[in-house]
Design a protein around this nucleic acid. Sequence first.
DNA 1: AACTCGGGGGC
DNA 2: GCCCCAGAGTT
Length: 358
Amino acid sequence: MQEQSLQTVFALLTEWYHVYKRDLPWRRTKDPYAIWVSEIMLQQTRVEAVKPYYARFLEELPTIRHLAEADEEQILKLWEGLGYYSRVRNMQAAAKQVMAEYDGKMPADHKALLRLKGIGPYTAGAVASIAFSLPFAAVDGNVLRVMSRVFADERDIMLQQTKKAWEEEINDALTGEIAGDVNQALMELGATVCVPNGEPKCENCPLRTLCLAYQKGNPMQYPVKSEKKPRTKEYLSVCFMTDGKRIALRKRDSKGLLANLWELPHVPKEYALPMAFADWGIQQAEIKNMRGQKHIFTHIEWHMDAYFINVKAMADTPFQWVTIEEAKEKYALPSAFKKIWAEGLDMLEDMEYEQIHL
DNA sequence: AACTCGGGGGC
DNA sequence: GCCCCAGAGTT
């Protein structure tokens, strides 16, 4: 791409952006911390999903110091349901870094930002350009899609060399003051006009006249992406286990999927339930069937059988027995278990009702 | 370079 | 179903 045409793209884009940009919460602040929080939340996550989390998070942890000093249980609870939980654990690690190395203030320095946990090329560019008006690219999926279409570029955007090439290209063309708006304009266009699924709205696009994919009449052919591998299936027997008042939760391992979150006890489906009970110290229990559930992760599918377990007698168990109120306040439960959780609460309520009217 | 790591909305 | 989303860390 010639330098010249990229400058033209930026000019058309920022002009359009000033008129059509959405009023988003994180566009109302200049606080680098708030902008940082928004960028972490927005990684691989849609704007509408982020909004309620963003407001609640900043309300409870309004400064970098609050984040650095918070309990991990609290930050995971604030992230509950948003996914990619290592984002918030890395952000807290970075907040501690900022407290120790930068006196609690986000460094206005691209290289320093890149050294913080959880801040990669995209987020470093976004914070540097939006919060500090520094001339750095912020290349995300939107930018890659827009660029691929405008220049009818056939390179596979799944390859990191393609992303890196665009970063360098855009970096070279950016100047200080406008970088934040250019980056946001590229993303805004990608999110609202040059959309990822379905027909792009080329009739509303400020780049229509110079877009090569539009000229060729095949914008949907871009960007070129290599295929991803299929998901593996896992089959589980999940237990909503109660003693009548409290419910058994189990803390997940500190590494891997859903690290450090809480879960309903479960075993692989081929593992017999009485065997699991023996392992767990459950000596006497009443078992009712619940609805099975399926949950899809990026690379795994969980096919879950579910059981309501009314425990009558038990020894020591490896579980945390919590009340419903405690669970709601303090324990981050992944979305994978939410339907079984809700049905379990209903059955628990019915059970209490029957006891009273016996 | 390939894998891992969530969840949900749109079609 | 399948797409992919304001990506980063690990191997």
